[in-house]
Design a binder for these strands. Sequence first.
DNA 1: CGGGTAATTGACCCGGGTCAACAGCAGTGG
DNA 2: CCACTGCTGTTGACCCGGGTCAATTACCCG
Lengths: 246, 246
Amino acid sequence: MDNPLSLRIEAFTRLSREDKAALNQLAARSVREIDARRDIIREGEPPRYVRLILDGWACRYKMLPDARRQIVSLFLPGDFCDLNVYILKEMDHNIGALTRVRFSEIGREAMDAVTTTHPRITQALWWHELVAMAVQREWTLNVGQRTAIERIAHLFVELFLRLKAVGLTRRDSCDFPMTQTDIAEATGLTAVHVNRTLQQLRRDGLIQLERKELTILDLDRLKDVAMFNPNYLHLNREGRHLDAND
Amino acid sequence: MDNPLSLRIEAFTRLSREDKAALNQLAARSVREIDARRDIIREGEPPRYVRLILDGWACRYKMLPDARRQIVSLFLPGDFCDLNVYILKEMDHNIGALTRVRFSEIGREAMDAVTTTHPRITQALWWHELVAMAVQREWTLNVGQRTAIERIAHLFVELFLRLKAVGLTRRDSCDFPMTQTDIAEATGLTAVHVNRTLQQLRRDGLIQLERKELTILDLDRLKDVAMFNPNYLHLNREGRHLDAND
DNA sequence: CGGGTAATTGACCCGGGTCAACAGCAGTGG
DNA sequence: CCACTGCTGTTGACCCGGGTCAATTACCCG
């Protein structure tokens, strides 16, 4: 019954059974699947749908004319891509699949229908959007001020906590499908330097990363290294005053 | 009649006379003023109002425990700070005044009242929010991938275009109240290096910057240096199909 | 077993940081 | 009117984190 989607939303406020049903129905209507390394939508295209990641990892990225590339955000299961994007004429960035991704495409009408009839969901979606903005700000801080080891440590902690929130961690480890090149593009470093920095994190006994699985050996120390402040994730059920009670 | 606020919104869709009146009334209700270098709201505090910049420049910034500081966004006249923030329990960043700032504080009820009765404004506010997110992404790209000269050039072009959109430029120049330290904190560089890079931009005949006034001597070349793509500002009246016609 | 992608290593280099001194200038108060 | 103070901008000398280039090596998958 509890999937990443409802877990994600309920990190803000508890939904009623009826809310959950409406949400799951919304998510189930039009499901698509795409291979790893393929683009879901490209810069310049008109955004027609809100997308919801059901399974797999995706990313938003931007490119410079000379092919420098920056991953500006990551989408994990339960994440929506841009509520209300269809207000804009064209995409100013790309969304690409890092792994094989299952996602649902939600049209404007379906979205509007749910939000007008389910105020609690509407509030939760607003919360989701505000959190997405907060994460984007934290990433700006990350690439702007942190050193290589701090950036990567920060990325690991953030992703671990986000995955945990949607039930996708096992004790102290989780899937971690990003390549070192992906990590480089998300942190504004080069792949070579990411490699060396990962070795340092391993040497320091902070993490283990092999076969696309990340194990965090010492979360507290890793947080310290990253100067991680979890406040920007707003995961403390901040909308609990809106909780449904059925 | 046309102030930065309505100019800003009408970069998306033309408002009716009544829309404008409602908007201006909203903006006029509770106006405050604050000195340069003071904080408008601090990390940890509960956000109670949506704020609208009427006059002056403000910024959002985040700090690391060791006092490294990153300006993650800038607010110019006509900009709203975070629609619907009051959904969150506490601020995860600070908002500070770069100059003396006049702004209005809009409570939740006033905001809700306007949006429920003025769908065109609601759409426009959504557009505003989506653009703010797009700008944040571009800033992540900026600090993540661009070199020093590219970053600063990009900042100048962005701010010039944003100021132009709200009628605050004169031909090829505009006020530019940021110090070199401010520029450094916005671009993830040091003040020393900003100083040297500014000298290079001057030597190259791209800009003039003195006495808090910026003059752009060659906008096309500056855009080239910055690899500036204006699409993320979404300033092309993308909501013109919603235009009012009175 | 072969081919392609991802990870690793070494040698070298450079953009931008650091530190420290100093100059310019605006505001403030006597 | 000037002296003082503090912020902002400027400069020089030096250094280092991280980039570049290029070659291997490991791994994955059909």
